[in-house]
Design a protein around this nucleic acid. Structure first.
Length: 361
DNA sequence: CGCCTTTGACCCGCGC
DNA sequence: GCGCGGGTCAAAGGCG
């Protein structure tokens, strides 16, 4: 996510006074008083207009300076951020290289295709021959933590309703996944499957899939990270990979600012929790639209759980659904402070522009 | 042959 | 320090 995308200077934040601006009010003042011989009042209004213009120019130049400063700050931020990410990648690569010595398996099989794939990006900037002792463990752990926090900030939880008899833990979401592990966890007798995005070698996204304890017909998938590549294929609406069973899709995203659109091609991270049951007959009901801190998040994060029920095929065309989407988008946008700032700047810019063109204040 | 799943072993963080 | 539990690795085998 680029910072500049949050503060978009294309919204004409830099309000520039134009020659027209100086002329228009004068013309208007003169035209308003044409034919009237009230020299004193006229002079008073002209002085007032002049003062206002002076003030406007001052504020405009100040605004311009601030905008330039903001641009510089944004550029610096991006540069620093890129350096930081690059540095973290390098450190991570070094750390993993250095840790290979301590890990028996890694030392035994460095040429593992899995490892090569997974670390492709990180290895690009690795300075080979650097001893493991030379790297600062503090910095490594710091960078690792930062990276983990960065990833953890983008956690999406998707629940999908399947038949309880369906033992597969595969959620078809349009991406290509490679299963790399399965584990029975303590709090859930059903095994948890671990997947890694296998479409792009350096894609950091991981997915955990496990059946719900409460309702074993619900498969809960937890996505971590963001894909660095486009989606490979469209997710099949209301489908699971098991063709014989299947056909019940619940989408639940957890925690954050972005709302996932059900059955869409993107499973955006970090949105309010939305549970969509596309399986039941043709009714559309919105439940629990308010904040609901219970339920689906194993992390216990604040979440909105919304359950909408209808038939999958017609669902997205229904006006209720469109309205619901708009509401969700509006909610997400209004929660975003940067969007508010950009919107305010855009509105004020437009007002100023309009006033300049009409000559009215 | 290449890719995928399975599965037991290993790693590592955390709480006691 | 030790044990527990979650996460990951990688060899083995299956499948198209």
């Amino acid at each position: 996510m680029e910072f500049t995308s949050l503060v978009d200077t294309s919204l004409d934040l830099s309000f520039r006074p134009r020659p027209v601006l100086e002329k228009v009010p004068k013309q208007e003042v003169q035209s308003d008083f044409t034919g009237l011989s009230r020299e004193k009042e006229n002079m008073g209004v002209k002085n007032e207009a002049g003062d206002l213009l002076e003030e406007l120019n001052r504020v405009s130049s100040e605004n311009k300076k601030l905008t330039e400063m903001l641009t510089v700050v944004c550029e610096n931020y991006n540069a620093l951020r890129n350096q930081m990410m690059e540095y973290m990648s390098t450190q991570n690569g070094v750390a993993e290289d250095s840790s290979a010595g301590s890990r028996k398996r890694k030392a035994e099989s460095i040429s593992s295709p899995v490892n090569n794939n997974y670390n492709n990006n990180n290895n690009m900037d690795v300075v080979h021959g650097r001893s493991s002792e030379s790297s600062s463990s503090d910095e490594e752990s710091c960078c690792k933590k930062l990276r983990e926090e960065h990833i953890k900030a983008k956690v999406t939880i998707v629940s999908m309703k399947t038949d309880a008899s369906d033992t597969s833990l595969i959620v078809k979401d349009g991406y290509q996944w490679r299963k790399y592990g399965q584990k029975v966890t303590r709090d859930n007798p059903c095994p948890r499957a671990y997947f890694r995005c296998s479409f792009a070698p350096g894609c950091p996204v991981k997915k955990k899939v496990q059946r719900s304890v409460e309702d074993q017909s619900i498969v809960v998938a937890t996505y971590e990270g963001e894909h660095n590549h486009p989606q490979t294929s469209k997710p099949e609406s209301g489908a699971s990979t098991n063709t014989s069973t299947a056909s019940r899709l619940n989408v639940t995203t957890i925690a954050g600012t972005t709302t996932s659109v059900p059955c869409s091609t993107t499973l955006n991270s970090s949105g309010p929790t939305i549970t969509l049951d596309l399986t039941a007959p043709k009714t559309v009901e919105k439940r629990d639209m308010k904040m609901n801190h219970s339920t689906t998040s194993p992390t216990g994060a604040n979440s909105i759980r919304t359950t909408t029920t209808t038939t999958g095929g017609e669902y997205q065309n229904r006006p209720e659904f469109q309205q619901f989407l708009i509401e969700q988008m509006a909610t997400s946008l209004t929660k975003d402070p940067s969007f508010k700032a950009a919107l305010a700047a855009a509105i004020s810019g437009k007002i100023l522009q309009h006033n300049n063109q009409t000559g009215r204040w």
